[in-house]
Amino acid sequence: MKITLGTVTHPGGSRVNKTGSWRTASKPRFNHQACVACDVCALVCPEGCIFGTGQNTYYANEDYCKGCGICAEVCPVHDIEMIPEAGEDG
């Protein structure tokens, strides 16, 4: 076995970890009704997995969303809701 000094790896390789599988209870639903494109949900998402380009376009990439719920908590117009993981109908 070749032993190297330390470990060197390529940038951003963590993207292979689909941390969305961590969600146990709920996930965010972006209602796209009252969004003012303030971008706060995207700014404060600890996973950096919320994106949008204007009013009512925001979404969370469910491959990475861990369901923490911060986005729904901070949305100033309450346009994001946490819904059961299994979807609307439970």
């Binding site: 993207r15 292979v16 970890n17 941390t19 996973e47 950096g48 994106f51 990439n61 491959d63 861990k66």
Partner: peptide
Amino acid sequence: MVKVEERDKFNDHLLASGHTACPGC
């Protein structure tokens, strides 16, 4: 290289998704 999904083309975060911090960290 990991392929960045098309729909996340705005993803230019310098600390990438897929890190293993607790939810809400």
